[in-house]
Amino acid sequence: MDNDRIDQIIDKHQGKASSLIQVLLEIQSENHWLPKEALERVSEKLQVPLTRIRHITTFYKAFSLVPKGRHEIHICMGTACHIRGATHVLDTVQDLTGIRPGETDMDLKFSLETVNCLGCCALGPVMVVGGKYHGKIAPTEAEEALKNYE
């Protein structure tokens, strides 16, 4: 992500320090993670010390300071999904992508994360890829679904 785009986002919020979280969220959603250079730029433009930006970005789970893939995979490990075989789905996805929960692959294609409940237990086991919900998914179906992502 280049500085021009960051400046554009900052200008959209009139460069106000109070819009810090909004600015960071927009960078996060476009770039999938917050590189150090981006944080430095934001710190400089909004006149917010880097310490406070670090504090905020490490506080909220919505922000990532390490690279994330283009598609984020969330696999629900809640009780209902667990009973319906979420562990098998997770195993399959781990084998297919070669990454474990919390990791990102080398091509920045997928990031894998486990979650504790997505609030739709009747659909269990659930896998979410980039915001799209795949419910009642079998390990083989999970494999098929992931092949559709570039």
Binding site: P49, L50, T51, R52, T58
Partner: peptide, 27 residues
């Protein structure tokens, strides 16, 4: 560092049980 020196070289990161103090290397 923030109030008297106004340098903000040291700050908190993370939250809950993992909250800790770090120095920002660049500053």
């Amino acid at each position: 560092c923030a109030e008297v020196k106004k340098k903000n070289a040291v700050g908190f990161v993370d939250r809950g049980g993992r909250r800790e103090v770090i120095f920002i290397p660049e500053i």
